[in-house]
Simulated scan of single mutants.
Amino acid sequence: MEQHGEILARYDRQMRRGAVADGPGARIEHVAGVVRQTAGHQGGWDGVVWSDLDAATADGAVAAQVRHFASLGREFEWKLYGHDRPGDLADRLLAAGFEPEPTETLMVASVDALRDLRVELPADVELREVTDPDGVDLAARAYERAFARDGSWLRDYLLTQLAPAPRTAVAVVATAGGEPVGSSRLESAPGRDFAGLWGGGTAPQWRGRGLYRASVALRARLAAERGHRFLQVDALPSSRPILERLGFTALTTTTPFLYRPGRPARVR
């Protein structure tokens, strides 16, 4: 695999500076040292994916993004990476009224170098790619069971992904006796070396039984079929040891900073 610095630079170039919109009507905008997404509808993901700022420009750029999303009546996320400049950008975001969510670790693995992916699932568990509205409903219900959160945004998002070709998001759902017990998705923008693993969650009573590892294996196969070289994931402490055993390595950290004057914002 390439060296750490080379992979991180490639990730920044392709996935952050070269970000693509993640849904119908959403737009990517490059404005004064910032790359942001403005969702096509209320409830989509709004936020900053990349910035190249310094001590002289940071406060103005932060204020400009607050004004932009406030003019739309939107809450939004500034996705701050551990190597972003200036070094005190987190403090500047806090001073501007942002609230940090738990820090995660950006981890990557070469699709070809993943190991120990074979999993024998319990006899009554089926893991499959979501291809129709019924599968979307199962994935959303599994999300709700895993995270104890409303899954309507995920249902709406995945339904929009059934029609486009090529699809840029593919959901995977695990069922036990026909009931949804786990879900996850693969974000797969055409022409990118990286495919993202997102939203992996398992209902509490089914954790520790190989469902997460099996979902990584299935999504790795789907990524390879789409021509991606690397998988990336923003890993919580609970999933990092599993990913390390599979061959993932840490690149940097990422912290969602939320600006939410009203109701809670959705975190990607």
Results as ranks from 00 to 15, higher is better:
residue 14 Q to I: 05
residue 50 W to T: 02
residue 247 G to L: 00
residue 266 R to T: 10
residue 244 E to G: 13
residue 160 T to F: 09
residue 260 R to S: 01
residue 198 W to G: 03
residue 181 V to L: 11
residue 16 R to A: 09
residue 114 L to W: 12
residue 179 E to V: 03
residue 45 W to G: 01
residue 91 D to H: 02
residue 159 L to D: 09
residue 258 L to C: 15
residue 50 W to N: 02
residue 203 A to H: 10
residue 47 G to R: 06
residue 244 E to N: 14
residue 263 R to K: 15
residue 93 L to T: 04
residue 98 F to T: 06
residue 122 P to V: 02
residue 209 R to N: 03
residue 53 L to T: 02
residue 101 E to K: 11
residue 181 V to S: 07
residue 161 Q to W: 04
residue 122 P to T: 08
residue 214 A to D: 06
residue 6 E to H: 15
residue 138 L to C: 09
residue 146 A to N: 01
residue 162 L to F: 11
residue 120 E to F: 11
residue 74 R to I: 03
residue 134 D to K: 14
residue 253 T to I: 09
residue 170 V to A: 06
residue 259 Y to G: 02
residue 100 P to Y: 01
residue 253 T to G: 10
residue 73 G to D: 08
residue 112 D to E: 03
residue 251 L to I: 01
residue 157 Y to H: 01
residue 29 E to G: 12
residue 168 T to L: 01
residue 10 R to H: 11
residue 155 R to Y: 13
residue 118 R to E: 12
residue 140 A to E: 07
residue 122 P to C: 10
residue 66 V to N: 09
residue 51 S to F: 07
residue 206 W to P: 06
residue 108 V to Y: 00
residue 18 G to A: 11
residue 175 T to H: 05
residue 1 M to S: 12
residue 134 D to N: 14
residue 53 L to N: 02
residue 90 A to M: 06
residue 246 L to D: 00
residue 28 I to Q: 10
residue 69 F to T: 08
residue 128 R to K: 15
residue 16 R to Y: 08
residue 38 T to C: 11
residue 112 D to P: 01
residue 176 A to K: 10
residue 57 T to D: 01
residue 262 G to I: 11
residue 36 R to V: 06
residue 174 A to R: 10
residue 200 G to R: 00
residue 223 A to W: 04
residue 146 A to R: 04
residue 142 A to H: 10
residue 265 A to S: 08
residue 7 I to R: 05
residue 111 V to L: 06
residue 210 G to W: 01
residue 255 T to R: 00
residue 55 A to Y: 06
residue 111 V to N: 00
residue 63 A to S: 10
residue 11 Y to N: 04
residue 224 A to E: 07
residue 131 T to Q: 14
residue 217 A to L: 07
residue 55 A to L: 09
residue 95 A to I: 12
residue 268 R to V: 14
residue 166 P to L: 00
residue 51 S to I: 07
residue 81 Y to C: 08
residue 181 V to H: 06
residue 24 P to L: 15
residue 31 V to R: 06
residue 148 A to F: 15
residue 149 R to F: 13
residue 193 D to W: 05
residue 221 R to E: 08
residue 149 R to V: 13
